[in-house]
């Protein structure tokens, strides 16, 4: 199927600013779905609120655009009630880890078979550039005119600690890598987290003097390195990319199926 067949043309033009990384996330994600040959009727995309969350309107899957921070809770209801469906949940960094942080760690803890995509632009794009729990200290935002003092979450470490059975990080600069990671995350049975750094030139870039989209992409190129690479070992200041966790642990819906068997035996 051509990539166009996965899009809802009626929904276009999209709402993202020129140079926004969210379009690249959409593109790489759809290429992964295409490569895997998934049936559109089997995919449900659930999202919250934010520029990132608008992605669910553009895809020709079953799409559930919900409320800020709660996408994973809605997705849990969809998945547990129909485990045969494939759940994709793209979220902004604020959506996933500020207002939605509790749902995030609990979905990871349950290891429910959902692919969570943290579209990390280190800022609140939709509301106009306030700092997020992934901004980190020393950044500029409309709510941090002097600078931020809040520490940031490390999405990889947080996901690992919370129990996600697949954890990866990539960027919108590394599109081939992103496609491969998405494919693995989607096929993985259990809770998968993909953090993808995605540029917001309009707010983060401008406030933090990172230049235009091209400049920001170059920063992703120059400040990250593949896990296991010489570059990363030699320079711990670089941010690791690649797959950090990929393990088999009991999946929630499969475990619940066993509870049903147990309960049914008890009444029989």
């Amino acid at each position: 199927m051509a990539i166009k067949d996965y899009l809802r043309e009626r929904f276009f033009p999209h709402m993202w600013c020129p140079g926004c990384g969210h379009g690249t996330v959409l593109n790489t994600l759809l290429r992964a779905v295409e490569d895997l040959g998934l049936n559109k009727n089997d995919i449900v995309m659930t999202s919250g609120i934010g520029c990132s969350a608008r992605i669910s309107g553009y895809v020709d899957f079953h799409s559930l655009h919900t409320i800020h921070g709660r996408a994973l809770a809605f997705a849990t209801g969809v998945k547990l009630s129909r485990p045969e469906l494939t759940l994709l949940v793209p979220m902004g960094d604020g959506d996933a880890l500020a207002i939605g942080g509790n749902h995030f760690i609990h979905a990871a803890r349950r290891n429910i078979d959902i692919t969570a995509i943290v579209m990390n632009n280190r800022i609140y794009g939709m509301t106009g550039g306030q700092y997020s729990p992934l901004s980190g200290p020393g950044k500029k935002a409309t709510t941090a005119p002097y600078k931020t003092i809040d520490n940031q979450f490390d999405v990889v470490e947080l996901s690992k600690a919370a129990g996600a059975s697949f954890v990866a990080r990539t960027t919108t600069y590394h599109v081939q890598e992103a496609i491969e990671i998405f494919k693995k995350a989607i096929t993985h049975k259990g809770f998968s987290v993909v953090e993808i750094l995605t540029q917001c030139p309009t707010h983060y870039g401008r406030k933090n003097k990172e230049g235009d989209a091209v400049n920001m992409l170059e920063i992703y190129r120059d400040t990250t390195a593949k896990v296991g690479s010489k570059a990363l070992t030699e320079n711990p200041a670089l941010l690791g990319r690649g797959i950090f966790v990929d393990k088999d642990t009991p999946e929630y819906c499969e475990e619940y199926e066993k509870i049903i068997q147990l309960a049914m035996r008890e009444v029989a």
């Binding site: 559930l64 919900t66 809770a73 809605f74 209801g77 009630s81």
Partner: peptide, 16 residues
């Protein structure tokens, strides 16, 4: 994990 999540989960399940 809380009542917000419970409400959201039932909406998701109703849609299936």
């Amino acid at each position: 994990e809380d009542e917000i999540a419970s409400m959201c989960a039932i909406i998701g399940a109703s849609l299936t």
